[in-house]
């Protein structure tokens, strides 16, 4: 039911043209993530996995977090209560891959040069560094601060450039970069699908580096359109309500802004769920959405 729904929606968007691409013929994926905040320990493995997978550069002082490129960033949330009733929760924040309304995510629609794009095939918000000319409008548009600017030339200490992955193009100074759900892994998985003569990329064949690395198993990744994928089962997205999770413990960041993100968070703690969005004092957590 879910995928049928999306087929119709996307079909309408693309003027009825068949949306099909090679090996993934007929499959409209909506890749997304479910992060269990009760399991997340804030260890930072996802951040390092991301940096090492995606050729993210580093500088000798990375303590100014406003210029430090971390596609995946783990935020520390607190319940704001005084000692000893204080509670904390860690929240890993990759790019939320907003779908917005019909793929018009906050950042995609504002890019003047089409350097960032929303794909209806995967639901991934892409970023093409060589197209980007560094106006940073997308950064101004993103409420999650998921976009990072290369303020400096990336420089690796002599010899360290040897660990750079050929599947991810290193960025030059002056462009914006962000998490792309390790799209290179989808590209490679699709290549494999071609030579194996299969029809579609399986759940195991395409997992992001952070999902794979998470030692607590807090991150789940897969196709939200596919009821067989774990992410679908965990988040239970309601396609009639822009993917609003039906799992009562699940929430999305700033859902009320209409960003329609594809990263779901799960927590059993009410204060954590409430921290996921802005509420007026008299509003109920999870309420107020569309």
């Amino acid at each position: 039911m879910t995928s049928a729904q999306t087929h119709t929606e996307n079909g309408a968007q693309t003027d009825g043209k068949p949306v099909a691409h090679g090996a993934d013929n007929g499959h409209l994926h909506k890749y997304g993530m479910v992060i269990d905040l009760d399991k997340c320990t804030g260890c930072g493995a996802c951040m390092v996995a991301c940096m090492s997978e995606n050729n993210v550069p580093f500088r000798d002082d990375e303590t100014d977090k406003l210029t430090s490129i971390t596609w995946m960033r783990v935020y520390k949330l607190t319940n704001g209560k005084p000692y000893p009733d204080n509670d904390v929760c860690y929240l890993p924040r990759p790019c939320q891959h907003c779908e917005g309304h019909a793929g018009h995510s906050p950042c995609v629609s504002v890019c003047p040069a089409t350097a960032t794009d929303y794909s209806t095939e995967t639901g991934i918000v892409s970023q093409i560094y060589t197209r980007c000319f560094g106006c940073r409008y997308c950064m101004a548009a993103c409420p999650y601060h998921a976009r990072y600017f290369n303020w400096w030339d990336p420089v690796w200490p002599d010899g360290m450039e040897k660990y750079l992955s050929p599947n991810v193009s290193p960025r030059m100074r002056g462009v914006v970069e962000k998490c792309n759900f390790c799209f290179q892994r989808y590209q490679l998985a699709k290549d494999k699908v071609y030579v194996d003569g299969e029809s579609t990329v399986s759940e195991e064949a395409y997992q992001t580096a952070c999902t794979q690395a998470c030692p607590a198993g807090a991150i789940t990744f897969g196709d939200l359109n596919n009821p067989e994928h774990l992410v679908h089962q965990l988040a239970q997205p309601d396609d009639h309500h822009h993917g609003h999770p039906r799992n009562p413990n699940a929430f999305r960041l700033l859902e009320r802004l209409g960003t329609n993100t594809k990263v779901y968070y799960v927590s059993s703690r009410e204060w954590v769920r409430r921290a996921g969005d802005n509420y007026l004092p008299d509003e109920q957590t999870g309420g107020g959405g569309h």
């Binding site: 995609v108 629609s109 350097a115 794009d117 794909s119 209806t120 892409s126 799209f183």
Partner: peptide, 19 residues
């Protein structure tokens, strides 16, 4: 094999051919 997965251009999305 028309690509029309890009919301912005109605053509192939960037990540089909870019990395």
């Amino acid at each position: 094999v028309a690509h029309s997965s890009s919301v912005q251009t109605q053509r192939g999305a960037c990540f089909v051919c870019h990395k």
